[in-house]
Design a binder for these strands. Structure first.
Lengths: 141, 141
DNA sequence: TTTGAAAATTGGCCTAA
DNA sequence: TTAGGCCAATTTTCAAA
């Protein structure tokens, strides 16, 4: 379902999703149509879910990124996770094993805004028992 | 440094980084060259770090994604974090406050492979005192 | 902002394995 | 049947005015 050529295409797209098919074809010593058809198939298969821009949060004023775990009663996990998805500031939401059943990534302009988000906005979701924010100091990879 | 139009461009690119400039221009009621020049400037400024493809890990055989915290002695944090970056399977590395000074995202094909990565490969890095993996059950956002 | 040439994308149709 | 090749029409990109 996914051969070596597909993997190489994905590798290239991971580094630069806007690279023209013609150039990818040149790099892999094959034709543009082959590349195009493979990519289209991967999009249809759901292997490729989309393309996105990688932003430096600090450069657009988001200086505080917090990996934030949430604890709830077991029966509330899914409802709370769904509620969390609704907030613009909550960029990622996972359910997971480990210390917290819900893990999120939250973007804020500063500590004060994070406080607002955590305590005034999110904090009001019914069922949250504990909030465990860990502020990212540096992203190394 | 970043006005409303730039923000809207970023918003659109976040949803689909391959959308042609002409189409973005149409959506924002402006010209293609204006859009292109703004994007170029954001790339030069480092606001836009790049473009990437969003992949469904499970579809390419990565069925176990683990948010993994690492504990070390304080003076070893940066060295360990740097070592972690070297592993292909470790897709993201952060230093952070909170329970663990180092947070990572690790991709493995299955539990057995995760075990190999954590205990045989990564586990051998000098200075790691504790490994705390949390396996992602579902990504909701 | 507009314009025009070069490049890339897209779709259809074809062949070969 | 599927992957890849080829061609032609359209769209997009890009730089200069």
């Amino acid at each position: 379902m996914l051969d070596e050529k597909d993997r190489k295409i994905l590798e290239i797209l991971m580094k630069d999703a806007r690279k023209p098919f013609t150039e990818i074809a040149k790099e892999l010593n094959t034709s543009e149509s082959s590349i195009r058809k493979r990519i289209k198939k991967m999009e249809e298969n759901g292997i490729i879910k989309g393309y996105t821009v990688v932003i430096e949060p600090a450069k657009i004023g988001y200086n505080v990124i917090a990996l934030t775990g949430f604890d709830t009663d077991p029966q509330d996990v899914l409802d709370v996770a769904k509620e969390l998805c609704k907030f613009e500031e909550v960029k990622k939401v996972f359910t997971s094993t480990g210390d917290h059943m819900i893990m999120t990534e939250i973007w804020a302009r500063d500590g004060s805004e994070l406080k607002e988000i955590l305590f005034n906005k999110i904090g009001k979701i019914k069922g949250i028992k504990k909030i465990c924010p860990a502020i990212i100091l540096e992203r190394l990879k």
